[in-house]
């Protein structure tokens, strides 16, 4: 009898390992869309999560404001200093924007890769399995027009891209994820011309992003801006990512790797913007006709 039980246990273990490997293999594939049970579970939990997260945020927000009050005086002094600079930059920006519009008119360019439409979203949850899965769940989904691989940013800079969507929520993979398939085409705003590379990988210990594939002869200085390049995918161009911290030759000496300090805070995120590239949008007239048709 004991022999039989031992065998039964062994068989259960073996079968479950086979199922485990099959399931992991299935979910590791580069999937276009989640299966419907997954979407259903995510949407249901998303509903509960958004109900719970709102009041929790109010309570957390209250304590945070109390903490903020403590150093208001210091901050105010600092901000006043910056304010003088801002007036000057704003004036400059205004004239540059007008000049840009005029020049575009001359060249008859209507759209550029840098055009995007921001969509506001709020975080309802975050994956507790941090370090392996740096993901956040937001309250906008397929029915609001979110698609896979769209760029997501806070007011300060890029934080990640949409990993998957369900009808009412979507999951965003942050830049700090260790996942090697998490790649973003980026460029260094050099003195003369932009230098292209890809953001791949994250150094947890120093909190640096790795910008790989930069040309070996390029001279990149510390503190230069890194932005999205807008090449490929649905990413818009010119979204700030961070600043170059250090440049080293890569392991084979063919390329350079830049360590980039991310601009956005990847920890305390509350509101995000999902960016829809303006250029891939269908023409205006089509939308209007559809809308009119529905009204009739």
């Amino acid at each position: 009898m004991p022999q039989f039980f031992l065998n039964k246990r062994l068989i259960i273990l073996l079968v479950s390992i086979i199922i485990l490997v099959a399931l992991i293999g299935f979910s590791l594939r580069d999937r276009e869309e989640l299966t419907w049970p997954e979407q259903f579970v995510k949407d249901t939990t998303g509903l509960v999560q958004s109900m719970v997260s709102r009041p929790a945020h109010y309570v957390a927000g209250f304590f945070e404001s109390l903490k903020d009050l403590q150093n208001t005086y210091e901050e105010n002094k600092e901000l006043k200093k910056h304010l003088d600079d801002i007036a000057r930059t704003e004036a400059k920006l205004y004239s540059l924007e007008r000049e840009n519009a005029e020049l575009k008119e001359i060249l008859e360019i209507e759209e550029s890769l840098g055009d995007y439409e921001p969509m506001q979203a709020t975080i309802i949850s975050r994956s507790p399995d941090r370090l392996w899965h740096e993901m956040i769940i937001i309250n906008k989904g397929k029915s609001h027009g979110v698609e896979k691989n769209m760029a997501v940013m806070t007011s300060r800079g890029l934080i990640g891209k949409v990993k998957s969507t369900t009808p009412f929520t979507s999951t965003v993979q942050l830049l700090s994820a260790l996942d090697p398939t998490n790649r973003i085409s980026a460029a260094v705003q050099g003195k003369e011309k932009p230098l292209y590379g890809t953001i791949e990988g994250y150094d947890k210990e120093n909190e640096w992003l790795l910008l790989k594939g930069l040309p070996i002869d390029a001279k990149i200085k510390e503190g230069e801006n890194v932005i999205t390049s807008g090449l490929g995918g649905v990413f818009p161009a010119d979204v700030p990512i961070g600043k170059v911290h250090e440049v080293v030759p890569d392991e084979f000496g063919l390329n350079q790797t830049a360590y980039v300090k991310p601009e956005a805070d990847l920890y305390n995120i509350e509101h995000v913007m999902i960016l829809t590239r303006g250029m891939t949008m269908p023409p205006e007239s089509e939308n209007n006709e559809e809308a009119e048709g529905e009204n009739l």
Partner: peptide, 11 residues
């Protein structure tokens, strides 16, 4: 449920 919602790697 944890796999589906928080990690997206089932198993």
């Amino acid at each position: 449920m944890f796999d589906m919602v928080y990690t997206e790697i089932i198993g």
